[in-house]
């Protein structure tokens, strides 16, 4: 996957300012950065959900904006902040998405059953998605993204709100999936998770890539990815506790 000169501004605010990124295939790639760094914006532009002001994105040799048919068939997406068709039940949602993707009906139903089982959603499959909890929504979104067996998977904060058991399951599913040669790109705020899962990391801050490369390279001398991250985004010295001395202690 290649990204070249990607640029997006919202009014005055430049959300992403000229990103160049080359990601290897078959890897587990983590995209990290502070809030508002532009991770969601970048992933939306890469997956064709948001039109960039400038720049090109190429996935598996196809340009996202010039050859959308080839790209969209090959990728799966779990966006952040966008709804699902919430008035469908979990199973109906999977069946709808799979059929829209052009997977034959019987195959969709088979895969949906397996995914619902693995993700521990079988008990809630006939509930409307509008009644799902945050973590359940993430899981059904993930199932919908996996349903057509994409080559590249883009996940925006897939572990947010997911319980530890399901997180472990999702990790297992994703690890098996990358082992078979597929690529996963995901954004996260949990450094330990990124450190243990990913073999390639890109750090974003203020709309730019601060560092990217194999995990060990980005971590460099620092004892952990957490430390390296804090140094990279320039927040090493900032600490709580200097102000806010009124906080706590029971007074008003």
């Amino acid at each position: 996957m290649r990204v070249h000169g990607l640029w997006k501004r919202f009014g005055e605010q430049i959300a992403v300012s000229g990103i160049d990124l080359v990601l290897p295939a078959g890897r587990f790639v983590g995209l990290v950065g502070p809030n508002g760094a532009g991770k969601t914006t970048t992933l939306s532009m890469i997956t064709g959900l948001l039109r960039p002001d400038q720049g090109t994105v190429e996935i598996a040799g196809h340009d996202v904006w010039r050859d959308p048919a080839a790209v969209k068939a090959r990728i799966g997406v779990l966006p952040e902040g966008l709804r699902l068709f919430e008035r469908l039940s979990g199973r109906e949602l999977l069946s709808y998405t799979g059929r829209l993707r052009g997977v034959p009906g019987a195959e969709v139903d088979k895969r949906a059953t397996q995914l619902l089982d693995v993700l521990d959603l079988a008990g809630a499959q006939h509930k409307l998605v509008v009644d799902y909890s945050t973590g359940m929504r993430k899981k059904i979104g993930l199932a919908a993204a996996l349903l057509h067996n994409p080559e590249v998977l883009f996940l925006d904060e897939p572990f947010e709100g997911v319980d530890p058991v399901s997180a472990q399951t999702i990790r297992g599913v994703l690890e098996r999936y990358t082992a078979s040669g597929a690529t996963v790109v995901f954004s996260s705020h949990v450094m330990e998770l990124v450190e243990s899962l990913c073999d390639w990391v890109a750090v974003m801050a203020a709309g730019r890539i601060r560092a990217d490369g194999p995990l060990a390279e980005v971590r460099g001398e620092a004892p952990s990815l957490q430390e390296a991250f804090l140094q990279l985004v320039g927040a090493g010295g900032r600490s709580a506790g200097t102000d806010l001395d009124w906080l706590g202690g029971g007074g008003r």
């Binding site: 997956t47 064709g48 959900l49 959308p68 048919a69 080839a70 790209v71 969209k72 068939a73 997406v77 966006p79 902040g81 966008l82 709804r83 699902l84 068709f85 919430e86 709808y96 998405t97 829209l100 993707r101 052009g102 919908a144």
Partner: peptide, 15 residues
């Protein structure tokens, strides 16, 4: 009428 769930539709329209 789809609200932002339209992304599901957008992802599957390539022509």
């Amino acid at each position: 009428q789809d609200t932002s769930a339209f992304w599901t539709v957008a992802m599957t329209i390539s022509s």
